[in-house]
Simulated scan of single mutants.
Amino acid sequence: MTKHKIYTMSFASVYPHYVTKAEKKGRTKTEVDEIIRWLTGYSQEELEAQLEKQTDFETFFAEAPQMNPSRNLIKGVVCGVRVEDIEEPMMQEIRYLDKLIDELAKGKAMEKILRK
């Protein structure tokens, strides 16, 4: 079975799209980074290093220091698919991030996005 194309894409190639999506709605790169750090456990320096290395999505999530245990509270639809129903673990992690960025762009408060 071939891997989904997103797994081999560089995280750094998609990251600017996350930032642009947030900024178009009046949010900030700092908030995008906070979401990514909350989800993955990367420090800001580690996140920047991953971006610099052009790490692919699969490696980015596989090397994440500590995936947030509260990520299973993320519910909803991304690209027409309920994130809680995705069976492929790596795809679910990617879609969790997509959902969090969507919530940011829709103006949700950071406390709610970060499931506090």
Rank of each mutant, 00 (worst) to 15 (best):
M1K: 01
T2D: 06
T2K: 04
K3T: 02
I6C: 00
I6Y: 00
Y7D: 01
Y7V: 00
S13K: 08
V14N: 00
V14W: 01
V14H: 00
Y15D: 02
H17L: 15
V19W: 02
T20S: 13
K21I: 06
E23I: 06
E23L: 08
K25D: 08
G26R: 10
E31G: 09
I35K: 09
S43L: 14
Q44G: 14
Q44L: 15
E46S: 11
E46K: 14
L47T: 08
E48Y: 13
Q50Y: 09
Q50K: 15
E52R: 15
T55Q: 10
T55N: 08
D56K: 13
D56T: 13
F60V: 10
F61K: 00
F61L: 12
A62E: 07
A64T: 01
A64L: 00
M67Q: 09
P69E: 12
N72M: 07
L73H: 13
G76D: 11
E84N: 12
D85F: 00
E87H: 03
E87W: 00
E88Q: 11
P89D: 02
M90F: 08
M90Q: 09
M91Q: 12
M91A: 13
M91C: 06
Y96K: 12
K99T: 03
I101V: 15
I101L: 08
D102Y: 06
L104K: 08
A105D: 04
K108H: 09
A109W: 04
A109T: 09
M110E: 04
M110N: 01
L114K: 07
R115C: 05
K116C: 03
